[in-house]
Amino acid sequence: MTEQLRKNIEDAEMHFFMQADPDIIKQYLDECDIEGKNLTKKEVLLKRIKFLSKASVKKQHDSNLLAIAIKYKEAIEKNTSKPLQYLRNIMASKVSASYNNSLDKLSQEEIIELIKDQNLINLMDQLEQNGIDNEAKI
């Protein structure tokens, strides 16, 4: 068999397992005696994978929040009007929270608290449009 034909067969095999209907995959696992035998083990492994995935997403989200909070501090220092107005609006909407009345007294943690429920991509875009450098990746 030529090397190219061998590669094509292997590519086809990989694409099959990537795209085949879930029932066909289950059927294959049943036939290999994998599904039933390793069910408990699979549950344990999957639980760990899902936990790691959530942790990874959370870590990235926290890192983005911090990056944006730093940019807002910069906007406060530079007195860039639009981002500051946006922060004021968020502060005004959070009636139950007790924040400093003055923006320049907001701590990084308070800014994070203010923006954590907002759409971070929109915030980044807004900061970028107003000349605040964006180094965070969302």
Binding site: F17, Y28, L29, C32, L46, V57
Partner: peptide, 27 residues
């Protein structure tokens, strides 16, 4: 990457990868 993680069906993807690995080893 992170958006994909949030939208991934891990049960399905795990099964597919295990089936693929089994087939390769079985070969």
């Amino acid at each position: 990457f992170y958006k994909e993680l949030e939208n991934t069906d891990f049960d399905d993807l795990f099964d597919r990868l295990v089936a693929y690995a089994s087939a390769k080893l079985k070969s």
